[in-house]
């Protein structure tokens, strides 16, 4: 540590690079916010403006009055919450089964599921579309929710977490005569709280930010999620830079806030997924 006083030059370099990197990472987001508050046309001026000459919220109001943004916001929120809640339940039960019950073929089954992670989701999309069409689920919330209700990655994350919890806890509960579902619900779920929060953030962000599948399965504009609506609007309103930036802010802001508040859990999740993978 005594070396630190002599090494101010490397420290300066490290902080300079970090500051430059952080600025490059944040600049597009900062400009998005600034441009969304500019009077119409100001984002297309030369030299480019970094800050609005007068702050206006008219583009945000226009999104809700002239365009159907409230609807998209509702769709995105509903889908993200529904998939998160249901998949958390289903994945945690499966992860619990893989971690704490012994049955024939368990490990081979788990290995098989992990190996399937290399199959890109796009391979499934065409038949999945046809399958959901048979069930009448195209252009419904179910078309997004049902295929997202179980995820191999989610099961994996829960299993890894539960492996570290001693079996003796469960045995004690069984001695007391608790039923298996009771044990899961009142012992395992509370024990898993941190990893469940992590998985909840992952899932919520994943559904909120997803683009390709909602684009395919939600065909009517009243069903669009924010990203699908935004991609669609950005074609029609390509000239309305400030309006599009306001739309981008509203799409990005909820998930950024969620991340900033729960960042500890999110980062821990990436590390767990990364280390054990």
């Amino acid at each position: 540590m005594s070396r630190r006083s002599y090494s101010w030059l490397p420290a300066l370099l490290v902080h300079g690079l970090l500051a430059a990197g952080a600025m490059l990472a944040l600049a597009p987001l900062a400009w998005m916010l600034a441009a969304s508050l500019m009077p119409p046309g100001e984002a297309n001026s030369y030299p480019p403006r970094l800050w609005p000459s007068a702050i206006t919220f008219e583009h945000y109001t226009a999104l809700f009055t002239r365009l159907d943004l409230a609807r998209y916001l509702f769709n995105s929120t509903l889908l993200a919450i529904a998939v998160t809640v249901i998949s958390l339940l289903i994945n945690s039960m499966a992860g619990y089964a893989f971690a704490k019950f012994r049955f024939r073929g368990r490990d081979r089954l788990f290995q098989g599921l992990l190996a399937a992670l290399v199959i890109p989701a796009q391979v499934t999309m065409l038949p999945l579309f046809l399958l959901l069409k048979q069930f009448g689920l195209i252009n419904t919330y179910g078309g997004v929710i049902i295929p997202g209700m179980a995820s191999i990655f989610g099961i994996f994350l829960i299993r890894q977490y539960l492996l570290a919890i001693p079996d003796s806890l469960l045995d004690a509960a069984r001695m007391d005569g608790a039923g298996e579902f009771r044990i899961y619900w009142s012992l395992i779920v509370p024990l898993c709280r941190p990893i469940l929060v992590t998985l909840a953030i992952f899932t919520f962000l994943g559904v909120w930010n997803d683009f390709m599948w909602p684009l395919i399965v939600l065909t009517d504009s009243s069903m669009y999620t924010l990203p699908v609506a935004l991609a669609n609007l950005s074609g029609e309103h390509v000239q309305d830079t400030e309006l599009m930036m306001a739309g981008s802010v509203l799409t990005v802001l909820p998930v950024m806030l969620l991340f900033v508040i729960l960042q500890k859990y999110y980062i821990a999740g990436i590390m767990l997924g990364g280390m054990k993978g």
Partner: peptide, 25 residues
């Protein structure tokens, strides 16, 4: 921790939204 958060922030953003932003950049 501050640098880490700043550098990480683009990851949580919505790809479609930031693609629209970058189109203007």
């Amino acid at each position: 921790a501050w640098f880490r958060t700043a550098l990480f922030l683009p990851v949580v953003t919505t790809l479609v939204a930031v693609a629209v932003v970058w189109r203007y950049l």
